[in-house]
Design a protein around this nucleic acid. Structure first.
Length: 524
RNA sequence: GGGCCCGUAGCUCAGCGGUAGAGCAUCUGACUUUUAAUCAGAGGGUCGAUGGUUCGAUCCCAUCCGGGCUCACCA
């Protein structure tokens, strides 16, 4: 259906990065003579809630996936893999039941009780949050749990393979380790049969033939047991490599902070006889000053904040743009990104072939961008909000005044934006408002305007209010410079230097309400 | 210090071998009951710097400068 619009020639010249990625993936598959279902993966660590980086990774991976599907017509899957068998290294702060968590340190996250008591484990709780999070954006994916994979035996063959290629794996890993860890390192971590903790202990003996290892358990006993069936797991870089091999992952991207890990995991998977997936390192986000975003410092913005003030599509656009550059993630980019998104939506229907495929909205919507745009820009709604305050209903009224001919679908989009704008105004603009006191001349004129508005009442025509505003200005000495009069209204009453046309404003906001606004300002 | 990534107009980005582009922002003009609408127009970049390859480089190569990440442990 979608493909009918684009020829192979179009697709071959598209420059948009998801297509560049798809081309690299296509080459990999050709090299491997791989003609099955193509597997994309993203990883998630369930020791905390999903965050903006989680969104970015899934969104960007999905963009590559859709480009690849269009390019090749092949079947694909996206696995969101949760590392929920990892041991809990430390108690995550800001959570209930700290002492309960503390008692389960080093245990697999699926063995740690849920501090909120709503799920079978801490990991189950966070996994559920991940899924709810991804579902909220409509991502198409399959969730996969490390614990389930290990326990089901899906990774058994890979664990045995690690035993077989143990020396090669160690040779890759050891140079990357510090002296202390080098002494005790093992790519295979047994789960203690007595305490249930993930053990970071050396393997005293190993037998690839029987699949058994010998290690010193907590308490000092020498234990011999098989690595299979969830009794042991792989450690980090070997784990990643093992997963690629066991699942047959074809594409996975990672943050640039993981560049070195990716390199090592690639070498390991080769040592195990596999082929590393295609993928690239996207850059991390920075704050307005170009500094790394850290949760403890609280710089930059969180996904919750972005979605409080703007649409998910705008966030997707942000993720689409320039993934190889360290992008500045701060408040001022939000409104801009929202309007850029609509600009791209507007252009899309008029674009053909490669041009359309280069358009970010093709990628944001997996080839099916919406046809409707709001009748006013988000910037416009924000300025409106800054004049009339953060009441979405009032904003909606204004939008209909500004664009009487707008379709209902278009207005629905604007209404959605109005709610974001209202919130943005209340949190970000209103606190910074500065009202100046009126001069005596202005005070008299504003009082006059207030009483005339009250006299006209709420039912009058907007022209009547507008005329009143001009009459008052003329009557109070502004006949030659009415601009100053209006500026005075905005600065004294609205706390800003510019504002809306007074007639429509009074009509929609209400004549009495406007009068009250003026009187409040004079009482300030 | 080593490795990887990035550096195009005020901002966000596109262009990736053939006389510098878009959106937003800014400024000007029009609409004469406004100053956020709308329309028309303008200014603004030695494409981080320097060398090299080429008839020709923002685009290729080298070096340098600036920024980010990474080089105990954990993931």
């Amino acid at each position: 259906m979608i493909a009918a619009r684009f020829s192979r020639a179009d697709i071959d010249v598209v420059k948009a990065w998801p297509f560049e990625e798809a081309r690299r993936l296509e080459k990999r598959l050709a090299r491997m003579k791989h003609d099955g279902v193509v597997l994309f993966e993203t990883g998630y660590g369930p020791s905390g809630p999903p965050h903006i980086g989680t969104f970015g990774e899934v969104a960007r991976t999905t963009m590559v996936r859709r480009a690849f599907e269009l390019m090749t017509g092949r079947k694909t899957r996206l696995i969101c893999f949760s590392d929920d068998m990892d041991g809990m290294r430390k108690v995550p702060p800001a959570m209930p039941n700290q002492e309960l968590l503390a008692r389960h340190l080093q245990m697999p996250l699926t063995r740690v009780p849920d501090p909120w008591g709503t799920h079978p484990s801490f990991a189950h709780h966070n996994n559920a949050r991940l899924r709810a999070f991804l579902d909220r954006f409509g991502f198409e994916y399959e969730f996969m749990s490390a614990t389930e994979q290990y326990q089901s035996g899906k990774f058994d063959a890979t664990l045995i393979r690690v035993l077989e290629r143990y020396d090669a794996v160690m040779e890759i890993m050891l140079p990357s380790l510090g002296d202390e860890r080098r002494e005790t390192y093992s790519p295979i971590l047994p789960i203690s049969p007595t305490t249930g903790r993930v053990l970071y202990v050396p393997l005293l003996e190993r037998d690839a033939g029987t699949g058994e290892i010998v290690f010193e358990d907590e308490g000092g006993a020498r234990v011999k047991m098989p690595v299979t069936g969830g009794r042991a797991k792989l450690q980090w870089k070997a784990d990643w490599a093992g997963r690629w091999l066991a699942l047959g992952v074809d594409y996975e991207m990672a943050g640039e902070d993981l560049t070195e890990s990716v390199r090592l995991s690639q070498r390991i998977v080769r040592a195990l006889g596999g082929e590393p997936p295609e993928g690239f390192n996207y850059q991390l986000f920075v704050d307005e000053e170009g500094k790394k975003i850290s949760k403890t410092k609280g710089n930059g913005i969180s996904i919750e904040e972005w979605l409080a003030y703007a649409t998910p599509e705008s966030l997707s656009l942000f993720m689409f743009q320039n993934p190889k550059a360290a992008k500045k993630l701060y408040f001022d980019v939000i409104p801009k990104t929202v309007d850029e998104y609509w600009g791209h939506v507007e252009k899309y229907p008029g674009q053909e072939g490669a041009k359309a495929l280069d358009n970010p909205v093709w990628h944001i919507h997996g080839g099916q961008p919406p046809a409707t745009t709001p009748p006013v820009s988000f910037a416009m709604i924000l300025t409106l909000a800054s004049a009339v305050g953060g009441d979405p209903e009032v904003l909606k009224g204004f939008i209909r005044k500004y664009r009487p001919g707008a379709s209902s679908a278009s207005l629905a989009e604007a209404d959605r934006l109005a709610h974001y704008a209202a919130r943005y105004y209340k949190d970000r603009i209103e606190p910074g408002k500065r009202f100046r006191p009126p001069t005596e001349q202005e005070r008299a004129a504003l009082l006059d305007l207030s009483s005339r508005l009250k006299a006209l009442g709420d039912g009058a025509d907007e022209d009547a209010y507008h005329t009143a505003a001009f009459d008052v200005g003329k009557a109070h000495g502004y006949e030659k410079n009415l601009r100053d009069w209006f500026a005075a209204i905005y600065e004294v009453v609205l706390g800003q230097s510019e504002g809306p046309r007074m007639g429509p404003f009074a009509k929609i906001y209400g004549a009495r309400a406007t009068a009250a606004l003026i009187e409040d300002a004079l009482d300030r």
